[in-house]
């Protein structure tokens, strides 16, 4: 066993042994160690690594969209000569009915997709955590009421409820995000509640209470951080679903509005030309498919790596 505070010459193998130590000397070492072990398990799963590559690729493409595809995604070339061209060396994915380069639009669409996912995650996760931990911590009628509300939200199919919300709020990407977030939080609330129930009676919670900490402080300071990891894993598993729901809303004309290069809306445009100019619909759809497959592969691998029971 390596003591954590003894000066050690830095070597990769030494660092590895420190991480994999069976007897960690500190909580940080234990936590980093279990993280590293998860990473090792993940690395052995080739499909998960493909998924990780796709997700990292998406982030890179979104960051470097202007470098990869310097053209303007909103304004096309001359309508007379460059409309609905098939894929070629000049236009890798062809052009659409406005003579815009589909490749450029798909690349810039990555930004929108990532933006939607990120916004949904930062809105839905805190709501779910707050509702779930509150319900689980207080129990009793608070729990009954909050969980009943959660169940009612879960009683609608996700896309349908999102559709109804967007219809009420009006189409647009912000409203789509709100609608998806409103339909995502119940699952996180359920999970956070279950986690809270298991730790609510632990000694350290009682200790905090005896020290006079307020309920709010216990919830946010002690309970929520402990629920966070499992909720985060759940959110990762959910990301593909978020992308598909957002694309579905876009496809129905309720998400991002034209001329924004949103993938779902682009597929909807391509519908009119599906028989003769298949690439207009096929390419953005392929992008949705690849990205959501990437998130699914990664999520699947994560679940296997972090939950030994599911990996059996």
């Amino acid at each position: 066993m390596t003591a954590p505070f003894e000066p050690q010459p830095f070597t990769w193998s030494g660092r590895r042994a420190w991480l994999l130590s069976e007897e960690p000397g500190s909580r940080r070492q234990a936590r980093l160690g279990s993280f590293y072990r998860g990473w090792l398990a993940l690395r052995e799963n080739p499909l998960a690594m493909v998924g990780l590559a796709v997700v990292v690729g998406l982030a890179l493409v979104a960051a470097l969209a202007d470098v990869i595809a310097p053209g303007n995604p909103l304004i096309g070339g001359p309508l007379r000569t460059e409309r609905l061209l098939p894929p070629s060396a000049a236009h890798w994915m062809g052009t659409d009915d406005q003579a815009r380069d589909i490749f450029t639009r798909v690349i810039h669409g990555a930004r929108l997709t990532l933006q939607v996912v990120a916004l949904v995650v930062v809105t839905a996760t805190p709501i779910g955590l707050l509702v779930g931990t509150t319900a689980g911590y207080f129990g009793g009628w608070v729990d009954a009421v909050l969980m009943r509300i959660t169940d009612i939200f879960l009683a609608f199919p996700r896309l349908i409820l999102a559709l109804a919300f967007v219809a009420a709020l009006g189409p647009g990407i912000e409203n789509a995000v709100i609608a998806i977030a409103l339909t995502s939080w119940p699952q996180y609330a359920r999970l956070a509640r279950a986690e809270t129930m298991t730790i609510r009676h632990s000694d350290f919670i009682s200790a905090a209470r005896l020290q006079g900490a307020s309920s709010a402080r216990i919830l946010w300071g002690h309970v929520a951080p402990l629920c966070l990891p499992s909720v985060v894993i759940r959110v990762t598993l959910d990301m593909a679903g978020i992308i598909l729901t957002a694309a579905g809303l876009g496809f129905l004309g309720l998400g991002a509005q034209p001329p924004e290069p949103e993938w779902g809306a682009m597929v909807a445009t391509g519908r009119r030309f599906i028989v003769d100019q298949w690439w207009v619909a096929a390419m953005p759809g392929l992008a949705i498919f690849v990205v959501s497959l990437g998130f699914n592969l990664l999520g699947d691998g994560l679940r296997d790596a972090l939950d030994p029971k599911a990996a059996r």
Partner: peptide, 18 residues
């Protein structure tokens, strides 16, 4: 199965029609 999970169903429908 993962492909079935991941493919946007409206796109799959269009490709099927095509």
């Amino acid at each position: 199965c993962l492909v079935g999970y991941s493919a946007p169903i409206f796109w799959l429908g269009l490709m099927g029609l095509l």
